[in-house]
Design a protein around this nucleic acid. Structure first.
Lengths: 251, 251
DNA sequence: TATACCAATATGTCTAGACTTATTGATGCG
DNA sequence: CGCATCAATAAGTCTAGACATATTGGTATA
């Protein structure tokens, strides 16, 4: 009972997942169809059931399959719905574009959160948080403008940080891992302050990105980032989960 | 050699992953630290090594850990960088907001792709694709405007679809699963046509979403969606991979 | 007819053991 | 001192088997 030889690390699960994707994409298995169960596929591909299980979980995580106990595995009716984001850290992003990075802190003070921000953070209005406004520059030209609120209760030693030297984004990322994040995008016509800080004209369409992060100590920070006109924020990938880790995020 | 009793389906891997996250977040393990190897943790938590492996892979996929063969597992220096997107299908989105959905096809014709679009699709300029312009309405008011190119080579039976009855988004999603997708956001001041179709004024800041999808037959479709002024597109989650599947995407 | 219950089933999860492979760190050589 | 080589290590993957549990569909009961 031990007639193995080839040995693992050959990604059988990955190949099975690919084959499953192929059958779905080429319509051998149609949307809504029940596919053969794990045991059958294990026989077909000549692998252990757990290997099939792993493969199907991969594909299901991508959204192409729906799996339910006892009910079996079906080809998803609304397939492939996830996309993973990969957003460079401001400084890296700017430096990777071959520009010299710098930043300027425009505001730093403790003040009561306005209602709108409190909602994003899930905190009561009026709580005293640290409020920062920072402009990030590439070769001296403004690239993005961030308006940030930091929750001191979730960020011990916040006082010790000098945000004129290291920007809040980097400091938080390096020191305060988060467990959950929410992103959002919208567009706004530049108001007077945005226009001034980004050195553009009022009314210019700006891409606005909101981001809020949490650890188990509560909300860490929420930011509103206004990008230079014309800026494009792209995601990479979707669906096909890569086994390797990569990417970045701003906090 | 068989003294088990409690039995699985208790998510030991998940609990271990949570504990690992906790140690990272609470800085018992600092950024850059090497953590105990799988065998040690298996002893500590009294589980099989493969269970620890699974737990650590989960956390590594979230970005909190970096793992390398022989080198061991370290707490990531730039942690937690992924966010998964979950975007409702237009019609569902509008209906879920309690509005009556309708759509209107403004343009439908085959024409040569302009250079800009060809680049997004990775096709030669001038290829003949199907070009559609559609406005989606909620309670009769324009919600979003999509400008779409569809590649007939990746979409068999394209002729048989009647996009006046079912919108392209839904038709594609139901029939043509994709394997890869790219998203992007930007902001533009509404031009004359955008303004007319969205019933707003020129110059208004519009959130623009670009999306391109591929199957193994090549690029399927690329869309530029212009949202009604004030529209907000949010992502959900990040990091903490949920074992269940959910969410939606537009094609 | 509606409900409660039960057996069968397919997936979910874990274990213990084995083999594979990238990478490190030490050793020996030119 | 720089470089090639090699053994040890830690993660990566797979297997076979077991138990867990949600769901289904049928059967018996009120």
């Amino acid at each position: 009972m031990n007639e193995r030889q080839g040995g693992p690390t050959v990604h059988k699960a990955q190949s099975i997942a690919s084959e499953v994707r192929r059958r779905i994409v080429e319509r051998e298995w149609r949307q809504g169809d029940r596919i053969p169960d794990e045991a059958e596929l294990a026989v077909e591909f000549d692998v252990a059931r757990s290997t099939v299980n792993k493969a199907l979980q991969l594909v299901a995580d991508e959204g192409l399959l729906d799996r339910r106990r006892r009910a079996g595995t079906r080809v998803a009716v609304n397939p492939a719905r996830k996309a993973t984001f990969s957003i460079p850290i401001v400084r890296e992003q700017i430096e990777q574009a071959g520009m010299a990075y710098s930043h300027r802190m425009v505001t730093q003070r403790r003040s009561p959160v306005p209602a709108q921000v409190a909602v994003r953070l899930g905190l009561p209005e009026g709580e005293i948080l640290l409020h920062l406004r920072t402009v990030h520059y590439g070769d001296g030209k403004p690239i993005q403008l961030e308006d940030r609120w930091i929750n001191p209760h979730a960020v011990p030693r916040l006082e010790q940080a000098d945000f004129r030297r290291i920007n809040a984004n980097e400091w938080l990322v390096r020191n305060y891992p988060y467990l959950r994040a929410e992103f959002g995008f919208s567009a706004e016509n530049a108001n007077r302050r945005d226009a001034r800080l980004l050195q553009t004209r009022q009314g210019q369409a700006l891409l606005i990105m909101h981001r809020t992060t949490w650890s188990d100590l509560g909300p860490i920070t929420t930011v509103r980032i206004a990008f230079q006109p014309g800026h494009f924020v792209g995601t990479e990938d979707a669906t096909e989960r890569s086994p390797s880790r990569q990417g970045n995020a701003q906090q």
